[in-house]
Amino acid sequence: MNKSLKRVLQIGIPVVIVGAIVIPRLDFFSNKDASTPTTAPQAANRGALPVTGMVASMSTSGNGIPVTGVLVANEEVELVSETAGKVVKIAFEEGALVKKGTLLVKVDDSDLQAQLARAEFQKELLAAKLERQRILLKRESISVEEFQQLETEYNMNLADIELLKVRIARTEIRAPFDGRMGFRFVSEGSYLQSSTKVSSIVDNSYLKIEFSIPEKYIDLPLVGRKLTFQPSGMEYQIEAEVYAVDPQADVATHTITLRARYRNTKNLVAGMFVKGELMTAENLKYILVPTEAVVPEMDGKRLWIVKNKKATSVPVQTDSRNSQFVEVTSGIQVGDTVLTGGLMQLREGMIVNVKLNK
């Protein structure tokens, strides 16, 4: 009996020990195989650079061509003195509205007035003498030559009078058009040299918006187009109309300059910066990408796109742009995934995990 029990124990104890070792290992392998399908995607993305991107699509201009420009006065003149002399009168206030022909500044003309008075007296004397000579000529008491000499002297006197009046007029600075006066740079009693700037006058009743667009739009009928613009720092929109196109393109920027006119009802002033849109009748189509997606280089511009889950840099051609978007004319196609974020860490052929922007 003891021998049988001993044999059972000799056989049973090793079996129990082997079972205790083998069964947990079988559970481990079964659990590992069961977890493989859920962790495989994570393993596949492990090591991929997280980036953001967008799918390139065709855009159609609904509002027009985005532009920026500056306001230009309808008329603007720097007032300068045409003659040298002492200022005896300043007849305007800085910032005041003046009418065309209003006297603004008077330069001393006392010497010219004295010369004019003398010439006027000579005119009366010569006129009376000429009349007597005409009577004598009819009686043939004097020669024709004598009469013509006196007549020439009289006409020269009339010319001297007109010249003095012109010189006197040049001692007065008058408003060339209706407008608002600028700051003055002279005072009464100061001595003016010829061409000395006295002040300026600006007509802001109408304002011109000067802006540029890419030269490829030159085929469009631009004159008469509507321009909707917004002054810098203001929230309202204003409408103007294009009235002139510069006949020459800028060789450096390949743009053409246009001017639109606006009746100034908002008290805007010349020199203000504006941004707006030039309305077009055509549905212009193009691919727009965010400005941060375009990488400038020495030989041009590039975009990062995704091919087979790998980042690839491609050269592109761009055209007009604004503060947010750039128009891409060649280099990418509709449907390409363009990378817009995380570009600083990208390298050619790097595997990326793209999160598409809405």
Rank of each mutant, 00 (worst) to 15 (best):
L163G: 05
K100W: 11
A96G: 15
T36C: 04
F211Y: 07
P290C: 01
S110P: 02
Q149G: 04
R225A: 13
S190M: 12
S195Y: 08
A43I: 08
Y243A: 00
L103W: 01
A281E: 14
Q317L: 13
I90P: 03
D203G: 03
I209P: 03
G53Y: 04
E94L: 01
V107A: 09
G64S: 05
Q324I: 04
T60S: 13
L5H: 01
R118S: 14
V294A: 04
G12I: 08
L339G: 05
V242Q: 05
K358Y: 04
L346R: 00
D219G: 12
R170V: 01
I218W: 11
A127P: 05
I11M: 11
L137W: 10
E145K: 15
L192G: 02
I332L: 10
Q193K: 14
F273A: 09
Q122T: 06
V72A: 09
N204L: 02
L104S: 06
Y191C: 02
K89V: 05
S205R: 04
R174Q: 03
E76N: 08
L104F: 07
A48S: 05
F147Y: 15
G47P: 00
K301S: 12
K3D: 08
F183G: 07
S30K: 12
Y191L: 14
V55R: 09
N353A: 05
A43L: 12
E348Y: 03
E215K: 11
A73E: 07
A311V: 09
K100G: 14
E75N: 11
N155E: 13
V55E: 05
M272A: 12
R259C: 01
S194K: 14
E348A: 12
S81K: 10
D178V: 09
R302K: 14
E78T: 10
S59Q: 08
S35Y: 09
E241K: 12
M272E: 09
P315H: 12
N2Y: 10
P14L: 08
K285D: 10
Q333T: 12
R347T: 14
E140H: 12
P50H: 09
V144M: 06
Q324W: 06
